[in-house]
């Protein structure tokens, strides 16, 4: 018998079958944001738009709160959630900061602290 449970990694929620099942409606809503009209419809009336995709109250509240970690925990996939960036004017450093409890500047500094100086070129 094989154990298919993925080994946990701290600070990471594996987007697996269980998560994908829980988050389906939410991810479907975010998937719709590939379309500009959909983004405008959401911005015009977020509550109605969330209702249209049958989001649970937990999902609705997490999105009202822009609580990205909560959305991940509930079953959000970062690939579809990234489309929220277009709606709210975030970039990946903003999102990174929001999730890791840093300001955008702190997040940028964290990135730089790990990377810069390791450039190999040629």
């Amino acid at each position: 018998m094989t154990d298919y449970k993925m080994r946990p990694v701290e600070g990471t929620i594996h987007f697996d079958g269980a998560q994908a099942t829980k988050g389906f409606n939410f991810n479907k809503m975010c998937f719709s944001f590939n379309n500009e009209d959909a983004r405008q419809a959401f911005l015009a009336d977020p509550e109605a738009y969330m209702e249209k995709f049958k989001l649970s109250e937990e999902f609705k509240q997490a999105l009202r709160d822009k609580d990205l970690n909560k959305l991940l925990e509930l079953g959000g996939s970062i690939y579809y959630m990234a489309k929220l960036a277009g709606i709210f004017g975030w970039n990946m450093q903003v999102i990174g900061g929001m999730q890791s409890g840093r300001t955008t500047e702190e997040f940028q500094a964290y990135l730089d602290s790990q990377g810069r100086g390791k450039t190999t070129n040629g």
Partner: peptide, 24 residues
């Protein structure tokens, strides 16, 4: 029956099958 479905998918991927996985 999503739970068994995902269990099967995990097993298939582990054993080098390449299914398309359908939630809708």
């Amino acid at each position: 029956e999503t739970e068994l479905s995902w269990h099967i998918v995990n097993h298939l991927i582990e054993n080098d099958f390449d299914p398309t996985v359908c939630q809708d």
